[in-house]
């Protein structure tokens, strides 16, 4: 589908020329259920890419495949760092995807370490760096200065993200005590502390009020601006999707039905049909126009 769209436009798209992640023909089957059906798309480097679709469309399944929590039944997920190294995510266990391929994620139902303080949450995120600094614990137990300096640097980085997410005053409070919106921001800060190449956000605006969504938009745009991190997000809140994303992919029943800029996607009749549904008498009409579009783009 993306190929056809590209053809129709003539010039290649930014996410096709310089992708950070390429998903190629990914299938995910759970027994008889096909949750993701031959899905291919690219996430452009430095872009904010939104993955949208009705409930049960398979968005979170795609996320779980990218971050290694599921192994796709079939297909390839290629991640390319700006430095040039390439990782095949479908072959890596989940913790290595975060540690080596530098893909960080947040969760639809927030998963913080609720009994640990906000600062501790951000230090756990820097586990691998600190582990090396503590000489795999041995040097750390002896209390050598090398580890103490590394910990100071880790705290500085945590402070930086606390500042960015407006959580500095709550740094010593348990994460479980924070209000909902702050927990969402902390989860993003925690993911950013792993210094990701690609940040995957699973419904970051869910449950936020309009002001908090606006703050979230600013935070995400700031991350793209200063950290140059590519962002892939699942979202239902169209104010977030349409305002900040450069590229929108629409899924329905595990299949991609649209892929393009927010304006293109907004006017796509399939997307409108998938989201709003159509009246019985309109079905034929819509299908006719759809056929025309596909024929038109194919030829």
């Amino acid at each position: 589908m993306s190929e056809t769209l590209t053809l129709s436009r003539g010039a290649p798209l930014s996410w096709e020329t310089n992708p950070v992640l390429q998903v190629e023909h990914v299938f995910m089957r759970f027994g008889g259920l096909i949750a993701v059906n031959d899905l291919s798309f690219s996430v452009g480097r430095g872009d904010i890419t939104a993955l949208i679709g009705p409930n049960g469309a398979g968005k979170t399944t795609v996320f779980n495949c990218i971050t290694g929590f599921y192994k796709p039944t079939q297909g390839m997920l290629r991640l390319q760092h700006a430095a040039g190294s390439t990782f095949l995510l479908e072959r890596m266990p989940d913790f290595r995807i975060s540690a080596k391929a530098k893909v960080a994620r947040t969760f639809q139902n927030i998963r913080l370490f609720s009994g640990m303080t906000v600062l501790e949450n951000l230090l756990v995120a820097q586990h691998n760096t600190l582990m090396v600094a503590s000489g795999m614990t041995v040097l750390g137990v002896l209390g050598l200065p090398g580890y103490r300096n590394a910990e100071k640097r880790a705290i500085e980085k945590a402070k930086y993200w606390l500042e960015k997410t407006g959580l500095t005053l709550r740094a010593d409070d348990p994460a479980g005590d924070l209000p909902y919106g702050a927990q969402r921001r902390l989860e993003i800060a925690r993911a950013m502390c792993t210094e990701p190449e690609l940040l995957c956000l699973d419904e970051p605006a869910a449950g936020l009020n309009p002001r908090e969504s606006a703050e979230l938009n600013a935070l995400l745009l700031g991350i793209r601006e200063t950290e140059k991190t590519s962002i892939l997000l699942i979202e239902h809140d169209m104010s977030v999707v349409m305002e900040i994303s450069d590229h929108v992919i629409v899924l329905e029943y595990g299949t991609k039905i649209a892929d393009g800029t927010p304006t293109e996607v907004r006017n796509d009749p399939r997307v409108i049909a998938a989201y709003l549904g159509v009246d019985d008498e309109e079905i034929d009409l819509v299908e006719e126009t759809l056929d025309e579009i596909t024929e038109g783009t194919a030829t």
Binding site: F95, R96, A99, A104, F107, L112, A125, H127, N128
Partner: peptide, 9 residues
Amino acid sequence: IACRSLGIN
């Protein structure tokens, strides 16, 4: 699960 998402073995 959150641990694994942060790269902890």
